[in-house]
Design a binder for these strands. Structure first.
Lengths: 129, 129
DNA sequence: TTGACTCAATTACATTTGTAAGTCATCATC
DNA sequence: GATGATGACTTACAAATGTAATTGAGTCAA
């Protein structure tokens, strides 16, 4: 397979809907757009087609409807996108992003608790190597 | 001022160099490109011009050299870019990104230590409201 | 059986982005 | 004072992106 080329913003937006629905027709995606998001049905068609062309989605025919489903795992797309962003904004270093997030975004005390647990688990599990 | 439009990847790359140098001529930016990054001098010129047009950089003339300096604070650009990414990838929720980062990226035990401290400070300081 | 719809497929088109070439002025040097 | 480097400024141009109109076929209800 040719090296996937990145997703544009609009494509990512649409891909996320397909991921959530775990496969969907153009119409389903169209109808799942958040209310503020006012784009044409045929625009959605275009994005889905491009996502398929780029190798991110599979298509199958259900009668005469195309049903799109994830091909590349969301996990993978997320990893790649985040990685690119870390490179671009922080020269590839994760810690500055972590600091940025902790300092600039909102967390409930429950969130903080969960984060602590994540860190605990990390340390516990970091016995390899 | 017109609402700044987002930065493209190439523009962000160049902007970061200007931030680091805290102001630089085209040539200085050009020479600060990492060795692998092989783009033309005039390409750098174009990116800097666009960054200025978009309102992200200031220019001043030093003799016949243009010296570009940050206009919008890096902090702000970072906040906006991260925010957009969180919206796009995680529907605006920060926690899933935090989990992703903790689970998918590498941290030294010192990093983990620092993160714990950040969280401590957060909780300590979260007395406002 | 004729609209009204729905959908697939194709085509369109302006804007943005990544990248650079061309032109003209200036400066330093030979 | 011709020549080479430097840089500003202008222009270029293909690819990617955001967005949609058009066309044509199939389906359903009246």
């Amino acid at each position: 397979m040719p090296p996937r080329t990145g997703l544009s913003k609009a494509e990512l937006e649409i891909a996320r809907i397909v991921w959530q629905l775990k496969g969907a027709s153009v119409r389903q995606v169209f109808e799942s757009l958040p209310s503020g998001r006012d784009i044409d049905f045929s625009t959605v068609q275009t994005y889905l087609r491009r996502l398929e062309e780029k190798g991110y989605l599979n298509v199958r025919l259900d009668g005469r409807n195309r049903v799109y489903s994830p091909k590349v795992k969301p996990q993978t797309v997320i990893r790649e996108t985040v990685s690119e962003m870390v490179d671009l904004l922080f020269g590839g270093e994760t810690m500055p992003l972590m600091k940025h997030l902790v300092e600039e975004r909102q967390f409930s005390s429950n969130d903080i608790h969960q984060l602590r647990e994540l860190l605990d688990r990390l340390e516990a599990g970091s016995d390899e190597q």
